[in-house]
């Protein structure tokens, strides 16, 4: 099969994300990239755990003073749901339904953007209410770096998926762009998984002390 071929619903392969050599390479290469990203976040988590609550003096707030579960719970739900909607999008991609795929991707984007808004609100809240900033303590530096790296990944994902939707809006699916959508959704799942760990390690473990 060639990437440029015009396909129909009948000739669309079962696994369009890996039905050409280029697609197979992209699929595997992206998994490896996510492997590297895992180590990257593992290093950030380790740094955070080493510096958690490490502040210069007792006027600074600690994790247990800062975090509030309702806000992070909502953020978590938004991001988890967006992962589910991206699965729906891929389901329609595999069924050669570009329209429905785009619809679900847009929903994914909206959920992701809502998550990002909450995160910005949260950071703003810490800075103004608690004077917990990037430069105020080692704890602050580690917190904003870990959670901010994740937020940056979400922002990049939003731009990436938006670009994909706009670029391919008029021409529908083919074997050249299907793998692109697929790896973008893999990326989206990955940042969702990272968030699950942030929610556990930073917020839940932060609340209990």
């Amino acid at each position: 099969m060639h990437a440029e071929e015009k396909l129909t619903y009948e000739t669309w392969p079962a696994e369009p994300e890996k039905s050409t050599l280029e697609a197979k390479n992209k699929f595997l290469g992206f998994w490896f990239f996510l492997g590297g990203e895992t180590v990257l976040f593992a290093s950030l988590f380790a740094t955070y755990l080493a510096l958690k609550d490490k502040v210069p003096d007792s006027t600074h707030h600690l994790a247990k003073d800062l975090f509030e579960l309702p806000l992070t719970f909502v953020a978590t739900m938004l991001l988890l749901t967006s992962s589910l909607t991206s699965v729906y999008a891929m389901y329609h991609m595999k069924n050669f339904n570009a329209k429905k795929m785009n619809l679900w991707l847009v929903i994914t984007l909206l959920l992701g953007a809502a998550f990002l808004v909450l995160e910005i609100y949260e950071f703003n809240h810490y800075v103004h209410e608690f004077h917990h900033t990037f430069t105020s303590s080692a704890f602050g530096s580690a917190f904003y770096t870990l959670v901010g790296f994740h937020g940056g990944h979400v922002a990049f994902g939003l731009l990436w998926i938006t670009t994909l939707i706009v670029r391919n809006a008029k021409r529908g699916l083919d074997l050249y762009n299907a793998p692109k959508f697929y790896v973008a959704s893999l990326y989206w799942h990955f940042i969702d998984v990272v968030w699950v760990f942030i929610f556990t390690v930073v917020y839940l473990m932060g609340m209990v002390g």
């Binding site: 740094t47 080493a50 510096l51 490490k54 080692a138 530096s141 770096t145």
Partner: peptide, 16 residues
């Protein structure tokens, strides 16, 4: 950018 990962007086740790 003024962070404090390795600044011991701000709680940082160079062993990281």
């Amino acid at each position: 950018f003024g962070s404090n990962f390795f600044e011991a007086s701000m709680g940082g740790n160079t062993v990281i």
